[in-house]
Design a protein around this nucleic acid. Structure first.
Length: 592
RNA sequence: GCACCCAUAGCUCAGCUGGAUAGAGCAACGGUUUUCUAAACCGUAGGUCAUAGGUUCGAAUCCUAUUGGGUGUACCA
């Protein structure tokens, strides 16, 4: 039993003994003591006064005295209004540092037997990745890492949208205007090449719409009748009919795209255990429609289309199968959900998808529940806000997107420039420099995107480069390098035989207290699916360490025992920084 | 129209299931380097937590209404 649990239990006992009342655990709120007061752990006593029939202050006093007697590690307390601040013995904290925090496995929870699938990235194969995808990828990767640390078994999957009218658009434009161009022939990454033809299609399409409009058609008519869109639709039909020429072209262009994506994924450092392809899964779901009809969860309209009525749940009537018997988006998602469960039998399944699909997932999950799928309760839509530019939303067809590859290389370049400016890379080899710039540039980008709560929309101004100072990735990386530098200049005792006897000063204590919180932070982040909580935590930690570093000499500490203690504290901090950053998918350098 | 999400310092964001005097970073201003990496540290200034009610011993946090912004509401995906 850890100290916090012990305190909670003892508070219950106290209420029982002092006031003869049963206190539910939920009513006991432990919080960090605010830094202007003495102590490390605070209990809010307001909820207890209905049992004590005394003032909050008096109740806190009674409770404080009781706890101090019962729990050895509580060496003092003070009461401010209704707040009971407990001072925990220094040797408790020192012991925490040596016994727990310094462990290699600190922050890795034992397996909890839960299997979780994280589906993320899920790109379309008609254009390269942009900043919005980057947010998605980093979120998915990080959430998976956090869940793993919390003890789950995690399966990362990518559901690639590799078919449909949008792919046909790129294919058609390439066929018409491409002159046999290939990634090799034009020295362009495959996904960018395909994206180029997607834009070309759109230009041509718009041109044709204008022509038809001047010829007297309405906007809607023109959109439907433009020859190029018709051709694209024909191509899609041929694709579905298995036309060999179309399939070959499709395979060729998708290969280009995949090699491009693979490069970007590698740079971002994300990976997947399994890929699902919509070209395989789009036919799925029809049997679920049957099942739903049998169970009367769905109903058929006279024209043959199949629907579900969700008005009782505050939603609408939703089409699940077209009158011609073909699937819609949700049909295949129903089927794919079943397929994924059959494949992995996971307890939870997380979909990392933007918030514009909130409604879709609400409907999807509700339908699966109504169908009586027991696993449906484990489905979770990790919805995140859009990444906006100052000019508004990114639109790939209009070319107002921040391209992922461009952004990454810009970040790396900026890192290079900043680092050279500071003149800190003497003695680095060419390769080491390159590696460092990658680390810093990507660290800045990843931290920037992950530090905000997923739900919130994110503003990215391409004209204002991402910061390298303050609450940033490089600041935390720098703190790590700083610690490593100190450690490399000293020999850290391998045994902690000489237990630290002097009193801790307040920064040292604060530092251990925050290190001690790390496992709890992981649990919280895992529960809320929120890398932002890890980001905020590691920033707090780095900031506090820098304060410590500035105020207290380490190598030049007066006594050897103090020096050894501070080295241990530094080493533990570096380790937790490194682990935390790893949960964000960010590497930290030993020198920078 | 209806549904969902968001609104906290000039800017970008924290603020856990309600708890102390609402916190950081950037930008601004001032200071710190013969001492372990100044991508750092210390300080000053900056707030009607969108507005109005309500619940509560206590509300940025919960409820209701209003305003402003976003998204969705297709036999598109």
């Amino acid at each position: 039993m850890n100290l916090e649990e012990n305190i909670i239990k003892t508070v219950q006992q106290a209420i029982q003994e002092l006031y003869q009342s049963e206190l539910p655990v939920e009513q006991i709120a432990l919080q960090d003591t605010r830094k202007e007061f003495e102590g490390q752990i605070t209990i809010v006593t307001f909820p207890f006064i209905k049992f004590s029939k005394k003032s909050p202050e008096q109740t806190a006093q009674d409770l404080g005295s009781y706890l101090q007697v019962k729990i050895e590690k509580i060496v003092g307390f003070n009461v401010v209004k209704g707040f009971l601040n407990l001072a925990i013995a220094d040797d408790f904290w020192v012991d925490q540092l040596y016994s727990d925090i310094s462990k290699e496995s600190y922050g890795q929870f034992p397996a909890n037997g839960k299997k979780v699938m994280v589906e993320y990235s899920s790109p379309n194969t008609n254009k390269p990745l942009h900043l919005g995808h980057v947010r998605n990828n980093l979120l998915g990767y990080s959430v998976a890492a956090i869940l793993e640390a919390s003890g789950c078994e995690v399966v990362k999957v990518n559901l690639v949208n590799d078919r449909g009218i949008h792919i046909c658009k790129s294919m058609l434009a390439w066929q018409k205007f491409g002159n046999g161009e290939t990634p090799e022939s034009c020295q362009l990454k495959g996904d960018h090449l395909v994206g180029k033809y997607y834009v070309i299609f759109d230009k041509e399409y718009k041109k044709q719409i204008e022509e038809l409009k001047t010829a007297g058609q309405t906007e809607d008519e023109a959109k439907k009748n433009a020859p190029i869109i018709r051709e694209a639709q024909e191509m899609l039909q041929k694709w579905e009919a298995g036309d060999e020429a179309v399939l070959n072209l499709w395979k060729k262009m998708n290969r280009w795209v995949y090699s491009g994506f693979a490069e970007t994924y590698k740079k971002l450092g994300v990976d997947f255990e399994k890929f699902y392809y919509e070209s395989d899964t789009y036919i799925l779901g029809k049997d679920i429609i049957e099942e739903g009809l049998e169970k009367s969860v769905f109903f058929k309209k006279p024209d043959g289309s199949v629907w579900i009525d969700l008005t009782a749940d505050g939603l609408d009537e939703k089409l699940v199968l077209r009158s011609d018997g073909t699937s819609v988006y949700i049909t295949q998602d129903l089927g794919t959900a079943q397929l994924k469960f059959n494949d992995f039998k996971m307890d939870e399944s997380i979909y990392v998808v933007g918030n514009e699909q909130d409604y879709h997932f609400k409907v999807l999950f509700l339908i699966l529940q109504k169908l009586g799928k027991t696993w449906a309760k484990g489905l979770y839509h990790l919805s995140y806000g859009m990444v906006d530019l100052p000019s508004g939303k990114m639109k790939s067809r209009e070319g107002t997107v921040v391209d992922a590859d461009d952004l990454i290389s810009e970040m790396v370049n900026t890192a290079k420039y900043r680092t050279e400016e500071l003149g800190k890379v003497e003695g680095f080899s060419i390769e080491e420099k390159q590696e460092l710039y990658q680390m810093i540039g990507l660290g800045a980008l990843k931290y920037f995107l992950l530090k905000v709560e997923p739900k919130k929309r994110l503003l990215f101004d391409p004209n204002e480069s991402i910061d390298f100072q303050g609450n940033t990735g490089p600041f935390i990386q720098y703190t790590h390098a700083r610690i490593k530098s100190v450690l490399s200049k000293a020999s850290l005792a391998t045994s902690h035989s000489g237990i630290y006897t002097s009193a801790l000063n307040s920064v040292e204590r604060d530092l251990i207290v925050i290190l001690h919180k790390y496992p709890e932070v992981i649990q919280g982040a895992a529960k809320d699916h929120s890398p932002a909580q890890i980001a905020n935590y590691v920033f707090e930690l780095a900031k506090l360490y820098n304060k410590f570093y500035h105020e207290e000499p380490i190598l030049k500490a007066e006594e050897e025992s103090v020096k050894q203690f501070r080295l241990s504290l530094s080493a533990a901090t570096a380790a937790v920084i490194k682990k935390s950053m790893k949960l964000l998918g960010i590497a930290v350098p030993d020198k920078m």
